[in-house]
């Protein structure tokens, strides 16, 4: 039996570069999350993919909030779906820094 895969279409680019999407196929395991897949992509396909996360699995830091199929969700608690393509974009309504990273730092916490 072929191992299952999940597919992610990920919005790429620095700042206000024109929209571009890269599609990745990732191995699907039961229970795996979108963040698991993004970390897998960074190691196995494209280390330059920019994502924001800190606590990895505990869902306490809330840094991995992105738009998944148009809904604002945590990448660390959203499950992958086998044989389906999910579309990922940075948080809407924020300045986009790169790929899936939006400017979520409070203004006073940014380097001048």
């Amino acid at each position: 039996m072929n191992p299952k895969t999940a597919r992610l279409r990920v919005r790429r680019g620095i700042a206000d570069e024109p929209a571009r999407y890269d599609e990745f196929a990732v191995p699907f395991e039961d229970g795996a999350t979108v963040l698991d897949a993004l970390i897998w992509i960074r190691v196995h396909r494209d280390p330059s993919l920019a994502i924001r996360y800190s606590c990895i699995n505990a869902n306490v830091c809330k840094e991995c909030t992105i738009a998944i199929d148009g809904r604002v969700l945590y990448a660390c608690t959203t499950r992958l779906v086998a044989d389906k393509t999910m579309v990922l974009a940075p948080l809407p309504g924020k300045v986009r820094l790169r790929d899936l990273v939006a400017e979520t730092r409070p203004p006073r916490e940014r380097t001048p």
């Binding site: 395991e29 795996a32 999350t33």
Partner: peptide, 9 residues
């Protein structure tokens, strides 16, 4: 196991 998300291990 089983995979547990949204909680610290």
């Amino acid at each position: 196991a089983p995979r547990l998300v949204g909680m610290d291990p």
